[in-house]
């Protein structure tokens, strides 16, 4: 703090200014929850992309590394991570579609935004189940 106070007032203000709204003071609503989910799934997909690239790299590296990646992916934990990854992918995708609708200026009315918020959650769960059912059937 002492170091901060030694600087110019403008600089000090910049350092202490709150950057984002405090989530804990708001009452939870569907639209707020899905906004938080959109950001959280985005962060999860950041890690998920690293895993997918790791899988591609293992495949490019040869049979040994690939067997290791395959063992991980087909293990119980691996399957749970993949299901979570696909759910995050579908949720973020539908959240993105919601943002595209909003970008046109539509979907801001009370009923429309509630329906869109619920649609992202229900839709992502339905798509995740559908995807893994298809994978199981193709096997």
């Amino acid at each position: 703090m002492a170091e901060v106070q030694a600087k110019s007032p403008a600089r000090r203000l910049e350092d202490i200014r709150p950057l984002s709204p405090h989530l804990q003071i708001y009452r939870w609503t569907w639209t707020m929850a899905m906004s938080v989910f959109h950001r959280m799934t985005g962060m999860a997909l950041y890690a998920g992309t690293v895993l997918i690239v790791g899988w591609l790299l293992a495949l490019a590296a040869g049979p040994g590394p690939y067997e290791c990646a395959r063992w991980l992916m087909t293990s119980i934990i691996g399957k749970l991570v993949l299901i979570a990854y696909t759910w995050a992918l579908f949720h973020h995708l539908l959240g993105g579609v919601r943002h595209f609708i909003w970008d046109t200026g539509a979907g801001f009315e009370r009923d429309a935004r509630m329906a869109l918020a619920k649609f992202t959650l229900v839709g992502s769960i339905v798509l995740t189940i559908a995807f893994w059912v298809i994978v199981a059937l193709v096997r």
């Binding site: 997918i52 495949l59 049979p63 690939y66 067997e67 395959r70 992916m73 087909t74 993949l82 696909t86 992918l89 995708l93 993105g96 579609v97 943002h99 595209f100 970008d103 995807f131 298809i134 994978v135 193709v138 096997r139």
Partner: peptide, 26 residues
Amino acid sequence: RLTALANLLLIVPFLWILAAAYGRDY
């Protein structure tokens, strides 16, 4: 938004590839 649209279009063939290759031998 540009990359979001690209991702949206590419995700379907990507999931197809992932589903086809998942758990397969080398």
